[in-house]
């Protein structure tokens, strides 16, 4: 049995309508960078979030983390910079199961100065990446995590 022209067109329209309804909820959640957060290696997370692993080490990125953290469950982190036209600030913990920890969008008028508290599974390098003018500026520091919480 041959499909008539009308039937064929009907299939096309219902088909594409179904596709559209399936796709809309996906795009509504697209804002959260799922791929980057799920990456289990630093380089992959960088690539997926920022599209590059080329970081320019810069002392203009001020990263405030303790050298030694007694409790890896809550480590204070602050990132601040005087670099102009900052688009985003992201924090990576190299040795965590998922290195990308947090990413902040900085619209025009918002200051490039953010603080939060993060988890460190073990002693690790913490890297702050500032995206400005399409370039990635970074600053890293190692944070030692004392296990057992006895302060040793």
């Amino acid at each position: 049995m041959a499909i008539s022209r009308r039937k064929f067109l009907n299939i096309l329209t219902t088909g594409s309508a179904a596709c559209l309804t399936l796709l809309t909820p996906l795009s509504a959640f697209a804002a959260w960078a799922a791929d980057a957060f799920k990456a289990t290696e630093l380089e992959l997370a960088l690539n997926r979030l920022l599209g590059s692993t080329e970081l320019i080490e810069s002392d203009d990125v001020k990263l405030g983390v303790p050298k030694i953290a007694e409790n890896g469950a809550a480590v204070s982190v602050s990132v601040k910079t005087k670099i102009k036209k900052v688009e985003s600030i992201s924090i990576f913990v190299k040795e965590n199961p998922q290195p990308l920890t947090a990413s902040f969008s900085i619209p025009a008028g918002t200051r490039a100065d953010v603080s939060t508290r993060i988890r460190l599974a073990q002693t690790s390098t913490v890297t702050a990446v500032v995206k400005a003018n399409g370039q990635l500026f970074s600053k890293s520091q190692e944070v030692k995590v004392t296990i057992g919480g006895c302060g040793g």
Partner: peptide, 20 residues
Amino acid sequence: VFIAQFGTSVSQDPYLAFSF
């Protein structure tokens, strides 16, 4: 004025400070 995206390694009861 501000969007934060978090993964699982942000501490319990997340703390944030920012300014605009």
